[in-house]
Structures are given as structure tokens and as C-alpha cells.
Amino acid sequence: MNIQVSDIGHIIQLAIAPVFLLTGVATKLSVLINRLARIIDRTRVLEDRLLVANNDRYTQELSEMYKRSHLINYAITCSTACGLLICLVIAMLFIGDTLNLKLDRYIALFFVVAMLALISSFVLFLLEIRIAARHMRLRHLNSLPNQH
């Protein structure tokens, strides 16, 4: 089997779109990991405060931090799975074209599953943001002086 340079160029052209998608997923992972780090930092502060004073407000906020961390962890898992599937799509594009294998259905299937994982990651991220925003609104409302 003899592979032409033009064939390799064609394969690279096919792989460019998934590579850009992979870059976006990597950026999204960076955002998710930074949010998780902030949640972990706040959780440690709350846990330390609970050791000093058993306060229901700290307990409630800590519970919200645990919910948020679970959502972010699931979003990270989905984004990572998406990235892995995109890498497999790129590999299958090269393997299929180089070895003249019919991998079209597998490529399509893996791409659809990657998109479902990406969608799931965005939904989980949105849910985490909603919890954070609700908590911020409640803290703001609780900090306002009572108006009679």
C-alpha cells in the first residue's frame, strides 16, 4: 500500500474541524477545573469555620458547595469523555483513510456520543452556575438591613 502526500493532506483537512472542537473542549475543561478549585477553597474555609462554631448557615452553605462540586465533577467527566471521543474520531479518520477501512459509521457514532457528552457537560455546568447564582442572591438579600 502506497500513501500519497495528497492523501495525507486530505486526511489532515478532515481532521481540522475535530481538532478545533478539541481545543474548545480543553478550554472548557480549564474553566471547569478553575471553578472546582474555587469551590474546594470555599469548602475548606467553611469546614474550618464549622470546627470553631457550629453554625447552620455554614452547614447550609457547605451542603451547597458539595452539590456544586458534584455537578462540576460530572461536567468535567463529560467534557473529558467528549475530548477522548473526539481524539478517537480523529484517529479513526486517519486509520480509515490510510488503511482504506470503512469506519464511517463508527466515526459518526463516536462523534454523536461526543456531542451528547459535551451537551451533558454544558447542562451540568449551567446547573452549577444556577446554584451559585441563587446562593449569591440569597446572601445579598440576607445582608440587607430589615426594612419595616
Results as ranks from 00 to 15, higher is better:
80 T>N: 11
90 I>C: 05
81 A>N: 11
61 E>T: 03
48 D>F: 10
84 L>R: 10
79 S>N: 13
69 S>K: 10
65 M>D: 03
47 E>H: 08
63 S>I: 06
37 A>V: 14
83 G>Y: 00
70 H>N: 08
43 T>F: 10
67 K>F: 05
61 E>A: 06
90 I>N: 02
68 R>T: 06
38 R>E: 06
60 Q>A: 15
43 T>E: 12
37 A>I: 13
63 S>V: 03
69 S>W: 02
73 N>C: 06
86 I>F: 10
77 T>C: 06
41 D>W: 06
64 E>N: 10
50 L>Q: 05
40 I>Y: 14
47 E>G: 02
50 L>E: 01
86 I>W: 10
72 I>R: 08
83 G>K: 01
73 N>W: 04
65 M>Y: 00
62 L>G: 04
44 R>N: 12
86 I>H: 09
77 T>W: 12
51 L>W: 02
48 D>L: 15
51 L>A: 08
38 R>P: 00
45 V>P: 00
45 V>T: 05
43 T>L: 14
74 Y>D: 07
75 A>K: 08
49 R>A: 02
58 Y>L: 11
58 Y>I: 12
69 S>G: 08
77 T>H: 12
50 L>I: 09
52 V>K: 15
66 Y>R: 12
60 Q>L: 14
87 C>E: 08
70 H>A: 05
70 H>D: 09
